[in-house]
Design a protein around this nucleic acid. Structure first.
Length: 277
DNA sequence: ACGAGAACCTGTTTGC
DNA sequence: TGCAAACAGGTTCTCG
């Protein structure tokens, strides 16, 4: 799922609803997530206040009042469902962790594939933690530009699409937005990453930033029943230029190409062979 | 060190 | 309708 725009959308939804609230009760119904929940995970959350809600790459960081950070990754199928105050509906089949806050809100972590994770890490250990140590720069940071991207791709023979998915290069771009950004930049997903320099790198850096920013503005992409933290649907999926549009006409003005699907590193890539070179 | 592919797990869609 | 295969937004390990 969730790539940077969806995670950022969830972050904003959480911020509006549980920032400053205190965990009244926490419950772990299943502990074998991608990283098994720590012993006493629920007990350690009880009574904690959420002081800040941040995002790094595709990770949500809930800074608690005891010097720890509740780290959440949604993997492919993870969701954080925030209920209305006082509301206490039925739990989904794969509701693994339930947090009840003192403002009446319930936050449920659901993840049927269990590629996601929740874990508590001391704030001062975050940066050096194995989950974060090797992460590349944030694409929406002002310092992320053409020259910076060219340096990150230098020497890489791997196809450009695969390089964009590599979170040690740049973070936050996943399978949908990699295809989208490459189309926006007019660059072939098959091009060796190291050939992206100068004006091409500038175009790609800008395309990545614009694609992610547009998606955030739309509340992310909602696939199937994925919902953002507020329970609303994002609508960026309607703005996809190439993703999941195999056989359709290329949306580039004046381009007569058709969108093709190919498989790279076991993932689908969508592109226009005519205007992406 | 690098790059490609498989593995992790469950649910849904597609094709015969 | 039934069944099997393919596919799904991510990350991490293994192998060559």
């Amino acid at each position: 799922m969730p790539e940077l725009p969806e995670v950022e959308t969830v972050r904003r939804g959480l911020e509006a609803r549980i920032l400053g609230a205190r965990v009244a009760r926490a419950e772990a119904r299943r502990t074998d997530l991608r990283i098994p929940l720590q012993r006493g995970f629920a007990r350690r959350l009880a009574g904690r206040r959420v002081e800040r809600i941040e995002r790094r790459a595709k990770y949500l960081l809930l800074r608690l009042d005891d010097g720890h950070c509740l780290v959440v990754h949604l993997g492919m199928s993870g969701r954080l469902i925030v209920g209305e105050p006082g509301e206490d509906g039925a739990l989904a089949k794969h509701a693994h962790v339930i947090l009840r806050f003192d403002n009446g809100r319930r936050v449920v972590f659901e993840d049927h594939r269990r590629f996601g994770l929740m874990t508590l890490i001391p704030n001062d250990a975050l940066k050096s933690h194995a989950l974060f140590r090797h992460l590349g720069p944030e694409p929406l940071d002002d310092r992320f530009d053409g020259p910076a991207l060219a340096r990150l791709l230098a020497g890489r023979r791997t196809p450009l699409k695969a390089a964009l998915l590599d979170q040690t290069r740049v973070v936050g771009v996943g399978n949908i937005y990699a295809s989208e950004a490459l189309h926006r930049a007019g660059l072939s997903p098959k091009r060796p990453a190291r050939t992206v320099t100068g004006p091409r790198a500038a175009r790609l850096a800008e395309a990545i930033r614009a694609t992610l920013a547009d998606a955030i503005a739309a509340g992310g992409s909602s696939l199937r029943d994925y919902v953002q933290a507020s329970g609303e649907l994002g609508y960026f999926q309607h703005a996809w230029r190439v993703y999941d549009r195999e056989g359709e006409a290329c949306p580039t003005t004046g381009c007569a190409g058709r969108i093709r699907r190919l498989v790279q590193s076991n993932r689908s890539t969508f592109h226009c062979p005519v205007c992406q070179r």
